[in-house]
Amino acid sequence: MENLSNYFGQNIKDKRIVITGGTTGIGKAIADLLISLGGRVLTFGRDKEDFNHAFTDIKTKFPDCDLYGFPADITNKEDVKLILEEIDKKLGGIDILINNAALSAEGVTKGNLEDWQYILETNIMGYLTFSKEAVDRMTAQKSGHIINIGSMSAESRKPESTIYVATKTALRGFSTSLRKEINPLGIKVSLVEPGAVTSDMQPDSKASQQKKIEKLEMLEAEDIAMSVLFCLSQPKRCDIVTMQVRPHLQLI
């Protein structure tokens, strides 16, 4: 096998990469990793403070990197339009799409229809919208890779997060069908389903999450970033279709 540093960077350097929800947690970890390997990244998130913190942090670590984006809400049509214009202007297309922007949600006995609508717009329509836009741009070049960040909730189906389970189960079906639809166009699709990962979506405090990491009951965001990199690093002949990544002691 060739040098591993070349292997993991071969499909990243100078690639045009879009990461939805790339300002915190898994998305931010993926942005850090792909930028470190020379990727040209455009990312966004709905929280202005999180976005500014992420941008400053990345620019500090990688001063010469190609990093673009601005605060935007994936459910807002005008925001999406502006992001797409920025993609075409700054990147000139998309080689890699990381669909990551998502929100947590509880069960049907809590919340209300208005809250659920926003969750569905984010967790499902956001993925569909950017997949469609990516495919439109990838088809002409007959290449590309879409990675959907799902969740093991689609399998564990815990009763306290029924709405979230519904969205991640939908994403599992969408990813399977999407691959069959666009593989003939030369476009790859991978679904990465993490188990428990430290993030702002977790109900536990940061200190509690750290204890779970130490007890092998929770993953770091960087673990999922490395899993995404593995999917992206495969030669053209090889697809990682679905990857499930769980903490060692999380039994599902």
Rank of each mutant, 00 (worst) to 15 (best):
G111V: 02
M218H: 12
D47E: 11
F130A: 03
S175Y: 05
L216F: 06
A170H: 11
L84N: 11
P247Y: 00
D239P: 04
T162K: 01
N183M: 14
K158Q: 10
Q10Y: 01
G38F: 04
T75D: 07
K158S: 10
V18S: 01
A207L: 10
N112D: 08
N76S: 15
V108D: 07
M125G: 01
H248E: 04
E222R: 09
K142Q: 07
D57N: 15
S143Q: 10
K212D: 12
G45W: 05
T176H: 14
E106I: 05
M152V: 08
R179E: 13
L191V: 10
W116K: 04
E114N: 00
R16I: 02
R179G: 13
M1K: 01
I119T: 00
L219R: 03
K110I: 01
I98Y: 05
R46E: 09
T162S: 11
P184T: 12
D66V: 13
K15T: 11
D14F: 02
A140V: 03
L82Y: 10
V18K: 00
I83H: 09
N100D: 02
G144T: 01
T129G: 00
G45F: 09
T60A: 11
K206Q: 14
N52K: 14
A221Q: 08
S104K: 08
K236V: 13
E114S: 04
T56H: 14
Y127I: 03
D50H: 15
I96Q: 07
R179Y: 13
K90D: 11
D223H: 06
D136W: 02
R46G: 06
L249P: 03
I35T: 12
P63F: 13
Q202C: 14
C65H: 14
T122K: 01
L191E: 08
I149F: 02
I19H: 01
N11Y: 00
T43P: 06
L84A: 09
D136L: 05
A221V: 08
I187P: 07
K132N: 03
I30T: 01
K13M: 07
I98F: 07
D64E: 15
Q202T: 13
K13F: 05
M1V: 01
N52Y: 13
K142T: 04
S153M: 05
K212V: 09
L103S: 09
K90S: 14
S233D: 06
T198Y: 09
S104P: 04
S227L: 05
E181G: 11
P194I: 13
G38L: 02
F70K: 14
R137F: 03
E220S: 11
E133P: 04
V192N: 14
A225H: 01
V228M: 06
E86F: 06
V245H: 08
L103K: 07
